[in-house]
Design a protein around this nucleic acid. Structure first.
Length: 412
DNA sequence: TCTGGGGTCCTAGGACCC
DNA sequence: TCTGGGGTCCTAGGACCC
């Protein structure tokens, strides 16, 4: 198989080049500076592309932000200060206080996301969705796809995307998804990189293990502790040694990945497994002191999940909640029903029972509601779940001691 | 002044079934 | 009266990704 990995740059480049700009922060709220922006031109959605037309002084600076949230993305000029994706806004403000802060605008991203994916599918139909700005493409069967090793097709896609959206796009070309993804990083933004199977030693082995999609901070730390820093280091380890240290499945995968091997197909259709809504509060809340507010938030989350299910045509039978405490520890509880549902009242009721099983001594910073074990709502399975599974038998009874100690939980 | 929101997949133990 | 083995489902937590 020959694969592309294409990732669009959602920050539009021409206007932003050289300026430190970050996108991020919490939900949109009526804070002063955003208010000023609206007053200037209330009809408009404010995005990166406005930077070309509007005096820069109007835009809020990173250091004017108070509140919770993380950086979604940043221009390279901002990254030069050490600011990066997923960094807390407050930390970023320390590093680059004068960076321009733009609000996250998911509606607009969704629009551009749809447009860019539609354009790509018209050129190469086998597309795997990897989120708002990234896709895999299997171009093995695309007529002319092999010209110049895929470069001609990649250039065609870039042009079509830019013509329709003004967005730039980085594309990696390789014999499999693993390598295509890595290749796409080589030449950002708006680049094309091609990796062949016999380039692994020269182009992949010098890279840090973290560059492998699937090796995160924890795995990297373990590898470092074993003196494994680059993908080449990893490739030189015996398969059996890796299996001994990282488990049968993960060890074998690490070995394959280090050698550039990956047999995963491009998956063009997949069904969702779960849907959830969660929110981090502006301030930590306590179940007793803030019970009314928490109750409202909980109800709203249940309604939102139910509406998402309804809109997309799914029902689920596992209802769960998630809490994050002021110490950032998270817990989840869930319960599986003997039938499928998308009813906000039922989700709230079962979710409420899940909440009762948690020790609520600490203040909360996040509350989430999840519905899993989804099926399409118009299927037989949804109407007649195969068996009335023993959920009644296996569901854990709430610990009676805990219940008396934490009656506040009953407020849900 | 830490650390979003929406997902997927994996592991591991216990219950239960045959 | 010293203890099967394989399989599925449920639950909780955690790693990872975009």
């Amino acid at each position: 198989m020959d694969a592309f990995y294409a990732s669009v740059e959602l920050l539009r480049y021409p206007q932003l080049k050289g300026l430190p700009v970050v996108i991020g922060g919490g939900r949109r709220r009526e804070d002063d500076l955003l208010g000023r922006m609206r007053i200037l031109q209330p009809e408009r959605e404010w995005t990166s592309s406005d930077l070309g037309d509007i005096p820069l002084e109007v835009f809020p600076r990173l250091n004017s932000y108070t509140g919770r949230g993380v950086i979604t993305t940043a221009t390279y000029a901002a990254r030069a200060f050490g600011v990066g994706s997923a960094m807390g806004v407050m930390k970023a403000a320390k590093l680059c206080p004068d960076a321009i802060l733009l609000p996250v605008d998911f509606e607009q991203y969704r629009h551009y996301s749809r447009t860019f994916k539609t354009i790509v599918r018209e050129i190469a139909p086998l597309v795997e969705d990897r989120g708002v700005d990234e896709i895999y493409i299997d171009f093995t069967e695309v007529p002319g796809g092999q010209r110049e090793g895929g470069r001609v097709l990649a250039r065609l896609m870039q042009k079509a995307i830019t013509d329709a959206t003004g967005l730039t796009c980085s594309i990696g070309v390789a014999p499999n998804k693993l390598l295509a993804k890595m290749a796409s990083e080589f030449n950002k933004p708006n680049g094309i990189s091609i990796i062949h199977a016999d380039d692994v030693e020269s182009k992949i082995w010098p890279l840090a293990c973290r560059k492998i999609n699937g090796i995160g901070p924890k795995a990297d730390e373990k590898l470092q502790a074993q003196g494994i820093h680059t993908i080449g280091d990893l490739a030189h380890k015996e398969r059996d040694w890796l299996i001994d240290h990282f488990g049968k499945s993960h060890g074998a995968w690490l070995h394959d990945a280090a050698h550039g091997l990956d047999t995963r197909p491009v998956v063009t259709d997949s069904e969702p497994v779960s849907m959830s809504r969660e929110t981090t509060f502006e301030k930590d809340l306590h179940v007793v002191h803030d019970r009314t507010e928490l109750g409202h938030i909980f109800t709203r989350l249940c309604q939102q999940v139910a509406a998402d299910l309804e809109r997309k045509g799914y029902v689920g039978k596992t209802i769960g909640i998630k809490l994050r405490f002021d110490n950032f520890k998270s817990v989840t509880r869930d319960q599986t029903l003997d039938h499928y549902t998308a009813s906000p009242a039922e989700i709230r009721h079962i979710g409420g029972q899940c909440l009762k099983r948690v020790d609520m001594t600490r203040r909360l910073r996040l509350l989430g509601v999840r519905v899993g074990a989804l099926v399409k709502s118009d299927t037989d399975e949804a109407r007649h779940p195969s068996k009335a599974i023993s959920s009644a038998l296996t569901a854990r009874e709430p610990d009676p001691l805990k219940e008396t100690r934490h009656e506040q939980a009953d407020l849900f």
